[in-house]
Structure formats: structure tokens, C-alpha cells
Simulated assay, not measured.
Amino acid sequence: MTLAFPNPSRSFDDVRNGVRFIGHDGMFQVSFLVESDALIRSGGRFCEPEALEAKCLAAFDIARPEIHRAAKKAYAKSRRKTGDVYTLTGGDLL
């Protein structure tokens, strides 16, 4: 199966300081987190360094196609067991 993102939901994770989203590989859910620093450092075009939750969520929405490409790449490199979270950093979004 191929990783897909049929559900546009995303949420801010205060503890891990990033935006969580879910992909699907067939019937399996795959969890992702993109660090807020990744949104800030991605050429500075997504959100300001003093990003708040709303700014990070908006930045995620703007960068969604790039983030999904990075998520597919990370997932293809190492398929982990169910329940693991793939964390995307600034280097993944370059």
C-alpha cells in the first residue's frame, strides 16, 4: 500500500512542541509530528520564531504538500511498528 493523507486533521502538541497529523497505509494509521522549529526554519516563510499554536497550525496548512512529501519519504525509509511516531525536523523539509 501507499501512504495517503485522506484526513486533513492536525493538532498542536504542547508537550512535544509540534504539529501532529495522521497518514494511512491501507488500514493502518501512521502518526507523524512536525516540529515547530521545522516550520520556523523552513526558509522563514511559514511562521515567525515566536510562533504560537495558531501560527504553527497555519504554517502547517501552508506547507502541507511539502510536509506530506517529507512524511512519505520518512515512512518509506523505515517502516516502524504501529504506534510509533515519525518526527519531521527542519532537515526533512528542505
Rank of each mutant, 00 (worst) to 15 (best):
E35Y: 01
E35C: 00
E35V: 10
S36C: 05
S36N: 04
S36L: 02
S36Q: 03
S36F: 09
D37N: 09
D37S: 05
D37Y: 09
D37G: 02
D37T: 02
D37L: 11
A38I: 01
A38H: 07
A38Q: 01
A38N: 13
A38C: 11
A38M: 02
L39N: 00
I40L: 01
I40S: 03
I40Y: 03
I40C: 02
R41H: 10
R41I: 14
R41M: 08
R41Y: 09
R41S: 08
R41F: 10
S42L: 08
S42T: 07
S42Q: 08
S42R: 10
S42A: 15
S42N: 12
S42C: 12
G43M: 06
G43D: 06
G44C: 04
R45S: 09
R45L: 10
R45G: 11
R45E: 15
R45M: 13
F46L: 13
F46H: 06
E48S: 15
E48I: 13
E48Y: 08
P49V: 13
P49E: 09
E50H: 11
E50Q: 15
E50N: 15
E50R: 14
E50F: 15
E50K: 13
E50L: 11
A51Y: 09
A51G: 05
A51Q: 11
A51M: 10
L52F: 09
L52Q: 11
L52S: 12
E53H: 03
E53C: 13
A54K: 00
A54Y: 06
A54I: 10
A54F: 12
K55T: 12
K55S: 12
C56T: 10
C56V: 13
L57N: 00
L57E: 08
L57A: 12
L57M: 09
A58K: 15
A58C: 04
F60M: 03
F60I: 05
F60A: 00
D61P: 08
D61G: 14
D61Q: 14
D61W: 06
I62V: 09
R64K: 15
R64W: 12
P65C: 12
P65A: 05
P65Y: 05
P65W: 04
P65L: 11
P65H: 05
E66R: 05
E66M: 07
E66H: 10
E66P: 11
I67P: 04
I67K: 02
H68D: 14
R69S: 03
A70D: 02
A70E: 14
A70P: 04
A71Q: 08
K72Y: 09
K72F: 13
K73H: 14
K73W: 14
K73D: 15
K73L: 15
K73C: 14
A74D: 05
A74F: 00
A74G: 03
Y75N: 04
Y75L: 08
Y75P: 08
Y75D: 07
A76Y: 12
K77V: 15
K77N: 12
K77G: 01
